[in-house]
């Protein structure tokens, strides 16, 4: 990563101005990952979830979402995989990892899907106006009054979470789990976590959660894989998962451990630190023009100026 980045700046810098390469390297020596110091988080224990979809109901209620297409107590919806949508910020999917129980039946694993509230979110870095923003308490918050509807956040999100109101002609919104921003601001549990009858969703400060969870895994090595999904993925996420089945078999993506905005922000801030690149290029071109084509600086180009030198 580091090497290829250097290489890139070597090339780009040399092309724009060989004199300024050193400058470029200093300006982009490294983008520090961003994250609020003490955010909230949730850990979903996939070994505890029974797929009752109570969290979906709770989410629908606390967020005042429209009545769902599929009844919230209908378990046949689990027969196909769903994604969070404009009317459901969280969904439960059922996976079979291949493990059999004592009666030779496949053991299901239920996976709750919602926005991961990344520590260093791609959606927020991409957003053209800052309508998406990572709050101190960990929530990645959406402000519709800033949104222009470019949908770059949908392009950027590595978990493919945001949903868009394509049917609204003039005021469509980006829709995704809010981490129950208004509730956690008052240190209350999010709706889904509060409603879960199995207590599969643990809410707390992310750092504390991680410590507790690692102790729990160490105490139950048969029940849990030694991995917390979301601890390192894309630089860490506020929502995390523990499981007995390998995460790849449960629809989880294998993602890099660096924050997604790393490369784009390094390039942007490398080129635009103090606007050095545009200014240098302007100066070089002006120098060239002054040297080769000085009459240009006195007269607009065109056939008139050539005809009648004023």
């Amino acid at each position: 990563m580091n090497i290829s980045r250097r290489r890139f700046f070597g090339v780009a810098g040399a092309m724009i101005s060989s004199a300024a390469v050193g400058n470029a390297k200093n300006a982009c020596a490294g983008r520090q990952p961003k994250a609020p110091p003490n955010p909230y988080g949730c850990v979903v224990d996939l070994t505890a979830c029974v797929g009752c979809r109570t969290c979906e109901q709770a989410c629908n209620r606390v967020n005042h979402l429209p009545p769902p297409e599929e009844r919230l107590d209908d378990r046949t919806v689990l027969d196909h995989k769903r994604r969070p949508s404009t009317s459901a910020f969280t969904v439960i999917n059922r996976y079979y990892s291949g493990r059999l129980d004592a009666q030779n039946q496949l053991v299901p694993t239920y996976v709750k899907v919602q926005c991961m509230h990344c520590q260093d979110p791609a959606c927020a870095s991409a957003c053209i106006t800052g309508a998406l923003h990572k709050k101190e308490n960990g929530a990645v918050n959406y402000d519709k009054s800033r949104c222009v509807g470019c949908r770059y956040c949908l392009v950027a999100c590595p978990f493919q979470i945001p949903a868009y109101e394509y049917f609204d002609p003039l005021t469509p919104r980006v829709r995704k789990c809010t981490f129950c921003y208004d509730r956690i601001r008052q240190d209350e549990k999010p709706g889904c976590a509060a409603a879960c009858p199995m207590e599969a969703i643990t809410f707390g400060h992310r750092q504390t959660l991680l410590e507790v969870t690692h102790r729990k895994i160490a105490a139950n090595p048969v029940r849990y894989l030694n991995k917390v999904y979301g601890e390192f993925e894309v630089g860490g996420t506020s929502w995390m998962y523990i499981s007995r089945e390998p995460f790849e078999k449960l629809g989880f993506l294998t993602l890099p451990h660096y924050p997604m905005p790393h490369l784009t922000e390094t390039i942007q801030h490398g080129i635009f630190a103090y606007m050095w690149a545009p200014i240098t290029l302007f100066a070089i071109l002006a120098g060239v023009m002054w040297k080769i084509n000085p009459q240009q600086m006195n007269h607009a180009p065109g056939f008139q100026a050539q005809e009648d030198p004023i």
Binding site: S125, A126, C127, I128, T129, G130, A131, R146, C147, V148, C150, Y152, P261, T264, E265, Q268, H269, F272
Partner: peptide, 14 residues
């Protein structure tokens, strides 16, 4: 709106 709300991290903004 991008003219009002500057977001320098965003490539799209630039």
């Amino acid at each position: 709106k991008p003219l009002l709300f500057w977001q320098g991290n965003s490539v799209l903004f630039e």
